[in-house]
Design a protein around this nucleic acid. Sequence first.
RNA 1: GCGCCUGUAGCUCAACCGGACAGAGCAUCGGCCUUCUAAGCCGAGGGUUGCAGGUUCGAGUCCUGCCAGGCGCGCCA
Length: 586
Amino acid sequence: MKSHVTDLVRHALDSLDLAGTPDGATTLDPHVERTRDPRHGDFTTNVAMRLAKPLGRRPRELAEALVAALPASAQIASVEIAGPGFINFTLSESAGRRQIAEILDRGQAYGCSDIGTGTRVLLEFVSANPTGPLHVGHGRHAAYGATLANLLSATGHQVHREYYVNDAGRQMEILAISVWVRYLQAQGIDVAMPANGYRGDYVREIAATVSAGYGERFRVSAEVFREGLPPDAPDGGDQETYVDAVVRRARELLGEAGFRELFDQGLNAVLDDIRDDLEAFGVGYDRWYSERSLTTHGTIDTALEKLTSRDRLYVENGATWFRASDYGDEKDRVVIRENGVRTYFASDIAYHHEKRARGFDLLLDVLGADHHGYVARVRAGLEAMGEDPESLEVRLVQFVTLYRGGEKVQMSTRSGEFVTLRELRQEVGNDAARLFYVMRSNDQHLDFDLELAKSSSSDNPVYYIQYAHARVCSVMQQLAERGQTWHREQGLAALEQVEEPQAKALIRNLARYPEVVELAALNRAPQTLVFYLRDLAHDFHTWYNAQPFLVDDAALRDARLALCLAARQVIVNGLTLLGVSAPERM
RNA sequence: GCGCCUGUAGCUCAACCGGACAGAGCAUCGGCCUUCUAAGCCGAGGGUUGCAGGUUCGAGUCCUGCCAGGCGCGCCA
């Protein structure tokens, strides 16, 4: 509907023949938007005001000329000029009726559009290091990313969801030796967990599995383990130095193959847990992309060679640097360390380049807010390799703070005392978790109140929306119990009999749904959809309270039910995009 | 010190490339269940959009400077 009005305005602009006017006035995209106040009609445009200056004409006079040039439309009941030069459009009653029919016709497809058709998007999200279970912060990434994927798909984008698995690197080695230490302890060997090791209970579980599957294969004596190791932090040493020494010790004693086996035991156990967790949360991926594969497939080498051939690397102090500062980054960045090991950044630069090589138009990364300093250098890397820097878009997700009632829940990753996503899901349920996570703008800190999310009361927006859906189902149930049936055509034909102001408000908002989906998708802002659904549920509840639907007049009853069913359809469609269920009874 | 994000009602937050009187929920107060689920509805109060300037016909939104909070500034990932 919005696009229809936009077309009308565009036609009017064209017919006014503004050629030769300065400042690109002729190419101005007429901006049509919903009014906030119903007294201003349904849609409004400010083109007259925006064109007034470049054309040197009075806004209202220009508005009159535009209105006169508007093509006729059955959908528009009236057009008025108001205020400083707004052109306000009021839709005809029949436009609303047509909307209801369209919603019922299109069903699940109502709200989908093709504005993104032809755009291939690679959406990367969560990508948490597989060093432990996902915690509540990752949950927000998962919910946000999954919803974004749904929104982009609904608007016609071709979306590919990817999880970048950091299965190489130091953190994973630390997990491996953490498992080793727990394994040794389970074998009765007296060794201590490094200060920097992973202390969560899941490490013990993995160690127990290793113990059961490998027996004494990785067993060493405490003396051999300890011999010549530097002091750990509690003994006045440096925890990083110590943990690195333990990693070297593991490689010596277990051999590269043995260490790799232990490493993979840890990796696979954690990764399986993460996959399982996300799947249960309704978050799916098209591909789990292994960081290690970048090395084994030579992707990093290829990327570095490309940078070398473009003269974008140099050697200094034994390390190889990328000239990131030539591309807007604060400083140059190391890609190969003095010890010959490639940095994480080298992998990531190769990874992003490879994403482009796979033909994606847009690389959309969802990252934690603590990674914002990272964005400039990845973009610099893409640009240095000849890619459009604009092809990378990053959405930062701010932190989550858990509250139980008024009390802040303390969390510390280091000690392993963090609330996991799984625990959260078990406590509040998937629906509440999914909705609460995306209820706030991604760049806003999120206070997640566990008590509120669990409460089955009016405070809880999840139930408020779901309840509207359940009520429609209940009404249909009642209809059946009365031995009556709904006649669709009769209902649609009789829609003009539905005259309650509450119903009209509902129709108006139902018609807005496709615009909301589009807006939410383009702005990467799922919370827009949440707010819309709450409003829509409110419109429905209000109408529900104002009028009985199951009246004796069959035509009127069918008409009201048509509207009910349209409302239900939109709620289902919206909740589906959010990954929230729509129960039939509550 | 530099960079990014944020600052809107008592609390948590919306507000569509700048648009008409800044909106919800919660909380507070007052009403509505013999009639399709009261997990609901109706009504009331509550604001100098952190502060000060600027641009504009028009600023919560853009610019500058302050103030406050969060995060980041590794040859870690």
